[in-house]
Design a protein around this nucleic acid. Structure first.
Ligand code: MN
Ligand code: MN
Ligand code: MN
Ligand code: MN
Lengths: 220, 220
DNA sequence: GGCTTTATTTTGATTAGTCAAATTCTTATC
DNA sequence: GATAAGAATTTGACTAATCAAAATAAAGCC
């Protein structure tokens, strides 16, 4: 069995490689896991010797097929648990991430399958993050963000990446949840500022950096 | 935060001291936790230095008030999780113990309170084990077992101690779950054998040792 | 191309939890 | 009350995960 530390490293490498098989740097990996870079190096070497990653010394790390399988399993557990906490236990979508971070390592396949059935085999979690199937298939669709989409067009929010409580609470306060309808009223690149218009008529201002965390599709 | 190892030790000391404040021997504790006796000694010393147990060198260990508080919290989580797995996810009461053994260390108070409410604040888990309240109160009622109760009287099974899959499956196969009605048809102490009669008329034979794991009360 | 800055790796220590085997204490038995 | 058996403790060693700080390699810059 992979320890929860190993599971966290593999999941994080998957998330940082952004779907494709890009190399993940030790610096980024260490920062994401809140450890010192030397710790990440040591751990990655041990993952490599277990055949879970390829370590390109001094250049970065990439999942092997075996490592990717494990990582997708962890991601599936994480996202189904988040969905359960919101849909069944009625918890707030801004607070479930931390809970799932622990539970993802403690739940068995038997329990997970029942949760999945109870929830009706959802395709995405409360943040809009796609849920891998039991076979490890994951929706890789690429979306525009509020920082890159066309201006003025009616949009639908499909996903909020960035799991920090502060950011999610900001999103919730301003009605920027998956499914909400908005359009970009103005994008001032010099000031790094974006102004949204909601269907309610309300406007919301946010930075380019923040806007990059909100994925959108044309409203149909 | 107590590690899950610490939580397991404290919970096990509580279970082995059987409610009262009896000293628990290192041998019993080590066996219950599947570690070597020296390991239990080392761990108990560290628990003692954290003020969670009193270690009477060479005689045994007992929980302090602080240790008991932690242990009751773990027990509450364990039993509420088992109840959830059976009542909501419809899992088998013979297989939920192992699941709860891991989940009990990963679930937060916020999630637990919501589970408790969803289940209607149950007083006992699927095995009939009493669930401590949020304040650490636990039903300490003493029951007779099928090995000690009076013969011929109509009885109701209130609890099945002993969590091993084999034993629980034996109980399930023979309809010996909490709530079931039986009476002791015959108790042969020389042979160490007990014969039960169910309301259906069916008879079940079991050893004195097995009978000691089934707690009963007079059927009202 | 050589020098400087930055990222990565290495080295040496530390903590939690564990086991095997030697040692010491307790208790039962004669 | 001495002794043998059994239980508990101690000692030394090991694994997983981590950090601080020194060493090294890679990139960027003039
Ligand atoms: Mn995690
Ligand atoms: Mn999510
Ligand atoms: Mn446990
Ligand atoms: Mn139980």
């Amino acid at each position: 069995m992979a320890t929860s530390t190993v599971e966290n490293y593999l999941k994080q490498i998957l998330l940082l490689s952004a779907g494709d098989d890009a190399l993940v740097s030790m610096g980024d990996l260490a920062a994401a896991l809140a450890v010192v870079p030397g710790t990440a190096t040591t751990m990655v070497k041990s993952l490599a010797s277990d055949g879970l990653v390829d370590h390109h010394l001094r250049h970065g790390v990439r999942l092997t097929a075996a490592g990717r399988r494990v990582a997708l399993g962890v991601l599936r557990r994480h996202r189904l648990i988040e969905t359960f906490l919101v849909e069944v236990l009625k918890m707030d979508w801004t607070e479930v991430h931390a809970e799932a971070e622990l539970l993802e390592h403690a739940i068995s396949d038997a329990v997970l399958d029942r949760l999945d059935a109870l929830l009706g085999h959802p395709a995405a979690d409360p943040h809009g993050d796609p849920i891998p199937t039991r076979l490890g298939k994951i929706d890789a669709q690429v979306y525009a963000t509020l920082a890159t989409c066309v201006v003025a067009q009616p949009l639908r929010i499909v996903r909020v990446t960035e799991q920090s409580g502060e950011f999610l609470q900001f999103a919730e306060r301003n009605g920027l949840r998956p499914g909400a309808r908005v359009r970009v009223a103005e994008r001032d690149l010099a000031a790094g500022l974006i102004t949204l218009k909601k269907t309610s008529g309300r406007t919301v201002a946010l930075s380019l950096a923040a806007a990059g965390n909100i994925l959108v599709a044309p409203a149909r």
